[in-house]
Design a protein around this nucleic acid. Structure first.
Length: 667
DNA sequence: TTGCGATCCATTTTT
DNA sequence: TGGATCGCAA
């Protein structure tokens, strides 16, 4: 039992909880993950079989990490048969592994860009050139659709929340009257299209599982009896649909949920942190437990974080106390623009490396947006600082990868018309119109062979069919299939991507092939990869675990920590963002929680870079939202400042002398 | 209809 | 920065 002695009382109480269901409300840095891990170890020590324990987390990376750390407690060194998943991958496994329960087990998973283009396609078919309808409405329809499914709200409610947050009552009513039917029509088409072509989107995985188990008692008993304990991390990000899914497990399983309402930053995806407050009412036979002692940061860092939450109208009831005691005050530095900011950050990292012996891996650079990291990335490259980026999924989004994957998708499911649509357009003489028509023909053929026969009768590049015929035999070996495809399409890709093909694009496939080599079928590979587009970065991590700086979006930094945290672009117009101010209180609060997550990542040093100008986009930033700026009234005793008045910076950049004029005079 | 060049545009966050 | 979109020629 000595593994429990490393926990404090609060944590021990949680880890050894013996009631039915529990919600552990745990502030930042209070040992959430540790508690989950020890909970699992405790359960195992009580004789619970490892395959009866399910770990759910928000990303697969963190789920895997938790499982790995649990495995380290095994004396035998043998890895346990523990399952670590996200809600989505869990549902996908439930559906695929139980074809006798789920009729719709045979599907291709759409990634978000497919969903984009499908909505667009359907919308244009119906409303092209209809001047009374906004020609970009399909983007909104798509987001409302997903929001509706995930929050289980009605169409009208979803439209109100998503699209009308800054309208008055009359405007809202008009908007709904005008658009409700368009939303409904396109959504119907979308649902029908997916059904016809055996396609699922992310939301379908949850929806089908949750509703399927909810409706069918035998299925519910059968599936839920496979688990005894479900441990859920980052519970504040759970949305109503996921709650509904969990309902089916109330009777036969124990739920152990851990989360922090102040770190809820996924409302845009339907997450509802307020239901944490009502947990004991929603979940029968449940208890709430609390963790309040922070092990990560020094008190000064927590002071500024606590202050930020106290300023809110929402009562988060959080006041973190540092076990480690006192340290350095957060430092605020004003920067001229993103380039000087990127320079300052990287200079500091270098000087800490040289003078204070702090490794690169001790630093984390945090940004609200992924694009905000670009300048820092550039500076790292210039100064030869090794780095890794969290957030986004560059590889899967890049065109050449999607090109090849579209071939694979056709071989896996020839009814995947979106894949046809993409693939066909890679060839000469096929543009959008022809592609749509041909895709329709292909999908309606009896099988892939017939489809190809039809294609051959058209007067097109012979290679179109050759590629598919070459690829098809490798249906059980995705890595080999990738190799064959790029071999046969090498020339064509060189034509399409010009010098980029050989310069860098082609090299990406080595990584893709390695990832694919762990899958035993093309379908499996596609599903796995769409469910976890970040796979590639974690894959590369294990390749070279070298000392490097972490660059991350705040969203991807959840659960991470670093000795020194550089929080960039904390300017009057960016926390909260203009957009959030326009959308109202809920959005502003979400921005606040975002900033809170960022602040609480720091262990020893927190450096906040404020900026008054930006050269990105349309010139200088304006000051809308300045009056809402979270740090407007930040008490002076909570921070130190490196440049006490920003006027200095502005002065330095205002030249008042006479203009220089030099002629080149060499001869 | 395709395919190229020019122009404009807008930038959350992720499974 | 690149990206999507538009207009025009073939």
């Amino acid at each position: 039992m000595d593994y429990l002695s490393s926990l404090n009382q609060e944590q021990q109480r949680a880890a050894t909880f013996s009631g039915r269901h529990a919600l552990v409300i745990a502030g930042a840095g209070t040992g959430k993950t540790r508690t989950i891990i020890h909970r699992a170890v405790y359960l195992l020590s009580q004789g619970v079989r490892p395959d009866k324990i399910l770990i759910l987390s928000f990303t697969r990376k963190s789920a895997r990490e938790i499982v790995e750390r649990i495995n380290q407690f095994q004396d035998t060194g043998a890895a346990l048969n523990l399952s670590g998943q996200t809600f989505h991958s869990w549902c996908s496994h439930i559906i695929k592994n139980n074809p006798q329960v789920f009729e719709q087990h045979d599907y291709t998973l759409l990634d978000s860009e497919d969903v984009d283009s499908l909505f667009k396609l359907l919308f244009i078919q119906k409303y092209k050139n209809n001047k009374s309808i906004d020609q970009k409405l399909y983007l909104k329809i798509q987001s409302v659709y997903s929001y509706m499914i995930n929050t289980r709200k009605s169409l009208v409610d979803a439209i109100k929340i998503q699209e009308c947050s800054n309208m008055n009552e009359q405007e809202t009513e008009n908007y709904i009257k005008q658009n409700e039917n368009v939303f409904k029509e396109i959504m119907k088409d979308y649902i029908a299209y997916k059904k016809k072509n055996k396609l699922f989107d992310y939301d379908d995985l949850l929806y089908i599982t949750a509703n399927g188990l909810g409706q069918n008692e035998e299925a519910r008993k059968f599936i839920s009896s496979k688990y005894e304990h479900i441990l859920i991390d980052e519970f504040q990000d759970t949305n109503p649909l996921q709650y509904q899914l969990l309902e089916s497990f109330y009777d036969s399983c124990h739920l152990f949920c851990v989360g922090d309402d102040a770190q809820s930053i996924y409302a845009f995806r339907g997450a509802d942190f307020k239901s944490m407050h009502n947990f004991t009412k929603i979940v029968p036979d449940s208890e709430k437990l609390y963790l309040n002692i922070n092990y990560r940061s020094t008190q000064e860092i927590l002071d500024i974080s606590n202050w930020l939450l106290e300023q809110s109208e929402i009562d988060y009831n959080k006041h973190l106390k540092a076990k480690r005691g006192s340290g350095l005050k957060p430092l605020i530095e004003y920067m001229y623009d993103e380039y000087s900011e990127a320079n300052a950050v990287t200079d500091k990292i270098l000087s800490y490396f040289l003078n204070k012996n702090i490794e690169y891996s001790g630093h984390m650079v945090l940004s609200r947006t992924l694009s905000g990291l670009r300048q820092v990335e550039g500076a790292c490259i210039t100064k030869k600082i090794p780095y890794r980026i969290f957030g986004g999924s560059s590889l899967m989004k890049s065109r050449h990868i999607r090109d090849v994957v579209s071939v694979m998708r056709i071989t896996a499911n020839y009814k995947d018309s979106l894949a046809w649509h993409r693939y066909l357009q890679l060839w000469n003489k096929i543009g959008p119109v022809t592609a749509v028509n041909l895709a329709e023909l292909m999908v309606n053929a009896d099988n892939l062979g017939n489809a190809l026969e039809i294609l051959k009768t058209k007067n097109l590049d012979k290679r179109i069919c050759q590629v598919l015929e070459t690829a098809y035999p490798y249906i059980s070996s995705p890595a080999e299939m990738i190799d064959k495809i790029i071999t046969i399409m090498d020339l064509r890709f060189a034509e399409i991507y010009k010098e980029e093909w050989l310069n860098w694009r082609r090299a990406d496939f080595a990584v893709l092939e390695q990832i694919a080599s762990s899958s035993t079928s093309v379908t499996e590979f596609i599903t796995e990869y769409i469910l976890d587009p970040a796979l590639e970065s974690s894959f590369l991590d294990t390749e070279k675990e070298k000392d490097c700086v972490t660059l991350s979006t705040i969203h991807s930094a959840k659960g991470l920590e670093a000795d020194v945290c550089h929080l960039i672009n904390v300017s009057p117009y960016s926390y909260p963002s203009k957009r959030a101010v326009k959308e109202g209180l809920e959005s502003i609060e979400e921005e606040r929680r975002c900033l809170y997550v960022a602040l609480t990542r720091a262990k020893n040093e927190l450096i906040i870079y404020g900026r008054y100008f930006t050269t990105a986009g349309s010139g200088m930033a304006d000051y809308t939202g300045t009056s809402h700026y979270f740090f407007n009234n930040l008490p002076e005793n909570l921070y130190t400042i490196s440049c006490p008045n920003n006027e200095k910076i502005m002065e330095n950049n205002t030249y008042k002398g006479s203009k220089i004029s030099v002629d080149i005079d060499l001869f």
